Lab assay of single mutants.
Amino acid sequence: MSIQHFRVALIPFFAAFCLPVFAHPETLVKVKDAEDQLGARVGYIELDLNSGKILESFRPEERFPMMSTFKVLLCGAVLSRVDAGQEQLGRRIHYSQNDLVEYSPVTEKHLTDGMTVRELCSAAITMSDNTAANLLLTTIGGPKELTAFLHNMGDHVTRLDRWEPELNEAIPNDERDTTMPAAMATTLRKLLTGELLTLASRQQLIDWMEADKVAGPLLRSALPAGWFIADKSGAGERGSRGIIAALGPDGKPSRIVVIYTTGSQATMDERNRQIAEIGASLIKHW
Rank of each mutant, 00 (worst) to 15 (best):
I243L: 12
Q97T: 09
E237H: 09
E164F: 15
E210I: 11
L247I: 13
Y260P: 01
D250I: 02
H110G: 12
L100Y: 13
A235Y: 10
R92Y: 13
C75F: 07
L120A: 03
N50A: 07
T198H: 04
Q274C: 04
A40E: 05
S254T: 06
S240H: 05
R241T: 11
Y95K: 00
V82H: 07
A215T: 14
A215S: 14
V78F: 05
I278Y: 15
S254H: 00
G43F: 12
G239E: 07
K71M: 01
A211Q: 00
G234I: 13
H151T: 07
N168D: 04
H24S: 05
G236F: 13
N50F: 08
E237G: 13
A211C: 03
G90K: 04
A183L: 13
H156I: 05
I278C: 15
S254C: 15
E195M: 08
N168P: 09
L160A: 13
I278K: 14
S201L: 13
N152Y: 06
L111K: 08
S122I: 14
E108Y: 10
I259C: 08
P249T: 07
G236N: 15
A225R: 01
V257L: 07
S128Y: 01
P249S: 04
G52D: 03
K232C: 15
S51G: 11
D36P: 02
A266N: 15
P165L: 05
V106I: 00
G114N: 02
Y103M: 05
L205S: 04
Q88M: 15
D161M: 00
A183N: 13
Q37E: 03
L188M: 12
S51P: 04
L188I: 11
E270C: 10
M66V: 08
L196R: 13
T27W: 01
Y260E: 03
S80M: 00
N173I: 13
E169H: 04
H24I: 08
V78M: 01
D231N: 04
G251S: 01
S80W: 02
F58A: 12
K71Q: 04
S80F: 04
D174E: 09
C75E: 06
L28F: 05
R273N: 14
A133W: 03
H151A: 08
E175C: 09
V214G: 06
V42R: 00
A183T: 11
T107F: 07
S264Y: 03
S221P: 04
T131L: 11
T112A: 11
K284A: 05
A200H: 07
A215H: 14
L219D: 13
Y44E: 09
R238W: 06
G236M: 14
Q265H: 12
S281P: 06
N152G: 07
A133L: 04
T147D: 15
S264N: 01
L89W: 10
F228V: 05
G43W: 06
F149T: 08
E102W: 10
L135P: 07
G114R: 09
N173P: 07
N50D: 05
L218S: 03
E26K: 03
R271D: 14
L218F: 01
L196A: 07
I243W: 10
K30V: 15
E270F: 11
G242C: 01
K284D: 03
L150K: 00
D129L: 11
S240R: 06
Q204L: 10
A123M: 00
K109E: 13
V101Q: 08
E102N: 01
I206S: 10
G248P: 05
S264H: 05
T262M: 09
M209P: 12
V29G: 08
L282N: 08
M268N: 13
I206L: 13
I45E: 03
L55N: 08
P172R: 05
A183F: 10
V31Y: 01
T186R: 04
V72M: 12
E87S: 14
L197C: 01
K213C: 10
Q37W: 06
R118C: 15
L146C: 00
H156Q: 05
R220D: 15
P217A: 06
R63M: 02
A222Y: 15
A133I: 00
L28P: 09
Y95C: 03
L74S: 11
S264W: 06
H156V: 00
V157G: 14
L197Q: 02
T186I: 13
T116A: 14
V82P: 03
G142I: 00
I244D: 15
A40C: 01
A182I: 11
G85E: 02
